[in-house]
Design a protein around this nucleic acid. Structure first.
Lengths: 156, 156
DNA sequence: TATACTAAGACTAGAATAGTCTCATATCCA
DNA sequence: TGGATATGAGACTATTCTAGTCTTAGTATA
């Protein structure tokens, strides 16, 4: 369909949790998982991926856990999502070199590429610190930002 | 992940095709499928769904086929996508009444709802006639449009 | 009436996702 | 030093979703 994976969802929850507890000790995967009623092993996997992409730092050992690697204002929703699910591409055709088998004939490729860019733009505009604000704030969505930044696709 | 289904993709292709041939006779599912190298039965299914949602009209009998039900400028990408895949919801939490099992605790629901709205906004801005324009046009993407229209979620 | 088409929906196969389990490694503290 | 508690990594399973097929029925035209 057109849906965020649950893992990406969990990733956002975890990062937001860490953002709200960053003054304190590191949070373990167990701790976070319990708080939101999510499987602990699954949450651990998600956090591992985030650590891999340097969004969080892991601290081994007892009383270890995870902490944010950057300021919450420096982490976008796109960072988290693409760390977990890979690059955000609304169709398989829109990759740089990527070609569906009907590249020649496919007539919607280019328009969709542009739609994809707009979506990346939205996702990269939303930061974790914005997500932690109360909803009555305008918060979102600098939709008026320049459409072509082109710097997002890079992850993976 | 975060991907358009192939069926939705095919739907866009079909609608665009019909937009470009609307002066002429009705196009059969077979005809369109062949042109783009897609399974004919699958294309038929896709067109049926589009007909169901009154985006195209079906003409039975020999020399029948499909024709657009509206002007290409009146049909948005969102119309086509949600006709085929159902409403566009980036998480299962963001439905009107919809609640994940952790509604109380889930902290990302509201921010994601707002992201979802922005994406709907982008998709509803792109019309089939825009998709038929040549890429060197500015075409896309009235990103500066007001972020909160809220009128989209209704389809299905 | 025969033919060429759509309508509808059950069905199957395969891929993607969610989630589990196990073992290894690092750190802290008694 | 050794046990407890963390993460790291990757194989594994189960379930759900998607793509695609097939079959039967209905409808318009010639």
């Amino acid at each position: 369909m057109f849906k965020l994976s649950k893992k990406a969802d969990y990733g956002l929850i975890a990062v937001k949790h860490l953002a709200m507890h960053r003054q304190q000790h590191a949070c373990s995967a167990n701790e976070i998982a319990e708080e939101y009623g999510i499987s602990a092993t699954l949450m651990a996997k998600v956090l591992q991926k985030l650590a891999h992409h340097s969004l969080v730092v892991a601290k081994h050992g007892s009383s270890g856990g995870y902490q944010l690697a950057k300021e919450p204002g420096q982490i976008s929703a796109l960072d988290v999502i693409s760390a977990i699910d890979g690059p955000v591409l609304i169709t398989s055709c829109v990759t740089n070199h990527g070609n569906c088998d009907a590249t020649e004939r496919c007539s919607v490729k280019e328009p969709l590429r542009r739609v994809n860019e707009s979506i990346l733009n939205v996702l990269s505009t939303v930061t974790i610190s914005q997500m932690s604000e109360e909803p009555h704030e305008p918060a979102l969505v600098a939709l008026s930002a320049p459409a072509r930044s082109g710097s997002h696709m890079s992850s993976t």
